[in-house]
Design a protein around this nucleic acid. Structure first.
Lengths: 156, 156
DNA sequence: TATTGTTATACTCTATAACTATA
DNA sequence: TATAGTTATAGAGTATAACAATA
């Protein structure tokens, strides 16, 4: 739907100046994953970011908005509309914390839980489909390498 | 500059609902690479997309605009401004093809070549820095796995 | 003073439809 | 009729500054 059309053998050589960079492959592959998962989540009325948000709240009920922004690596202002959308659809609840009335505490509703479970199933199917060229060991290795690269960067 | 701040051990568990997905790690790692490489290219007056464009033209002199769009996986309308920018800076030339006056043929100028060489050096340093947690074999493996995943998807 | 969440805003990236000029 | 490149436009995603309420 968005990635440039499949490459013939003739065409393949043309990305040579970029193909030696891991960053190039990361970008292209991420784009593939993003556009595919968007298709998969669309029928559920979710985008990648609304799914991630819902899944994180579901996994950490009572999380605060500022903490959620940090976990999701989203700027706080950009989280506002996302939470309004989820709240408006009755998928999450936002409650003022009595001990500190500045903070909102977030949790999923029953509907939110039901939807996030469906969404996890859909995303797992999508992952299984896209990752099928790699065996279980390779998949783990891939994830470990990516996590390792990020961990080193966040220390630096 | 943009990725959420480093994770403490306590914090790490919070991304558990997403961390099992390769797509999650791809997105986060790609974001890290993109924001880092943007910093590296900025002093040269280049963005990721202008660098990719210049590097691809340099590696395939005489390439047509439509072909370039397909190689870069950029929609044709979005390439227009990019090429205007590069042409305006005297980094590339656009020549009408006499045999088919609809098409533009692209090549770098001497200035463009000099800049793209500098940019390659800068990007290679950036890659070396970010990929340093992985040894040579791992780096190759990573790139191969990513390419394999995309190749399978574009066949499907 | 500092922090939580909000508003307003802007810039980049990506995508689509419709146009023009050539073929 | 089809193709190359263009214009206009719109939607995501991401980023920053400044504000109100609360601590």
């Amino acid at each position: 739907m968005s990635e440039a059309s499949g490459k013939s053998r003739k065409q393949a050589a043309l990305d040579a100046p970029l193909a030696r960079y891991a960053g190039y492959h990361l970008r292209r592959t991420t784009r593939l994953f993003l556009s595919d998962v968007a298709q998969v989540l669309k029928p559920l009325g979710l985008r990648m970011i609304t799914f991630s948000t819902l899944a994180t709240i579901s996994g950490a009920p009572g999380i605060r908005q500022s903490r959620l922004a940090s976990v999701l690596a989203v700027e706080k202002p950009n989280l506002v509309a996302i939470l309004e959308e989820l709240e408006g659809r009755g998928l999450i609840l936002r409650e003022r914390l009595e001990s500190d009335r500045r903070v909102y505490v977030l949790k999923t509703t029953a509907e939110g839980e039901a939807l996030v479970r469906q969404a996890h199933d859909a995303v797992e199917e999508h992952e299984e489909r896209l990752m099928s060229p790699l065996d279980e060991t390779e998949r783990r290795t891939l994830i470990e390498m990516l996590a390792k690269v990020r961990a080193a960067a966040s220390e630096g």
